[in-house]
Computed example of a mutant assay.
Amino acid sequence: MVSLPEELRTWEAAARQQVEELQAEAAELALRLEEAREYLSRLEITRETVAQVLAELSAAEAEPEVLAGDVPEVNKVSAPHGIGVMAVPPWREGLVAQVLPDVYRDIVEIVADAPGPLQAKQIVPRIGLEATTAKIEGTRGKLKRLVERGWLDEDVPGRFTLARRGPGAKRPNSR
């Protein structure tokens, strides 16, 4: 038969082990909680930044056109709304590529510097992306948007050039 003091030691050892296991779980949960809080904070900051950028783009579209040499002033405090924002404005006389979002501006500059028409798969590595199907298709969408807004032409399907401007400029397949 087991003595009472030995039985208490056994129970005490089991309780001690359970406490240690729960402390380890609590430490793991505290670490996961901290990581989740950091992730949430990054998302909140990203959302606020995107809202601010969209609001500034919207405000810039409401202002007179930006001509070559003009630098739009960045508003430090703005009311973020972002509804109905057109990130790629339609091209019009005197408008420069600097008004475009970075990736669109890079695409226009790459196409402008090219000796001939470019395909999306040729542009993707030049803007610093991996040449995967998803990145190529995303870039093709951006190219099509630039065509719709008058920044680029697509005379041959899938081949993009800088838009021809002025009287007599034919754009047979630019839509």
Score class of each variant (00 low, 15 high):
K135A: 11
E12Q: 14
L95S: 15
V74C: 09
N75C: 10
N75E: 14
I110Y: 06
P157N: 07
L146I: 02
Q23R: 13
E109H: 10
V53S: 08
E12T: 11
E137D: 14
V111P: 05
P167Q: 09
E20F: 08
I83R: 14
V108K: 12
D70K: 03
D155E: 13
L146N: 00
H81C: 05
Q17V: 02
Q17S: 10
T161L: 11
A114H: 07
G166L: 07
A51Y: 10
G116T: 13
Q122M: 11
T49P: 11
P80T: 06
R171V: 07
Q98R: 15
A24V: 08
D113G: 15
R105D: 12
A59K: 09
I136Y: 01
Q119T: 06
V147L: 07
E12V: 05
L57E: 15
A14C: 09
L31F: 03
E6I: 03
G128R: 07
K121F: 12
K76M: 13
R140C: 06
L31I: 00
A120C: 04
V66K: 05
V111G: 07
L22V: 05
A59V: 04
W151H: 07
A97L: 04
G150P: 14
E61S: 14
K135V: 00
P72S: 02
A112C: 13
E38P: 00
T133Y: 11
V111I: 12
G141L: 03
S174H: 12
D153C: 14
D106Y: 06
Q18T: 04
I107T: 05
A79C: 10
V85Y: 00
A62P: 00
A24L: 10
T46K: 11
E130R: 11
G69M: 02
K76S: 13
L118D: 06
E61I: 00
E154R: 05
V88G: 06
A87E: 01
A59S: 14
R149L: 08
S78L: 06
R164C: 09
I136W: 00
W151S: 08
T139Q: 01
G138Y: 03
Y39C: 02
A79F: 12
R42W: 13
V71Y: 09
S78M: 04
R145D: 08
R105M: 14
I123K: 02
A97M: 05
R126G: 10
E6G: 06
Q52C: 12
E63Y: 06
L67M: 06
A112S: 15
G84H: 00
R92F: 02
E109Q: 15
V108L: 12
Q23W: 03
V50L: 15
L57H: 15
E130W: 03
E109G: 10
R37Y: 01
E56L: 07
L33F: 03
K121T: 08
R145T: 13
A112N: 14
R171H: 15
E7G: 07
L162P: 15
R145M: 12
K135H: 14
D70V: 03
M1N: 12
E65P: 15
Q52H: 14
L162H: 10
P101L: 04
L22I: 05
P115E: 05
V103S: 14
D102W: 13
P172E: 05
D106F: 05
A134Q: 12
K135D: 07
L100K: 10
E154D: 02
Q119I: 00
L40Q: 13
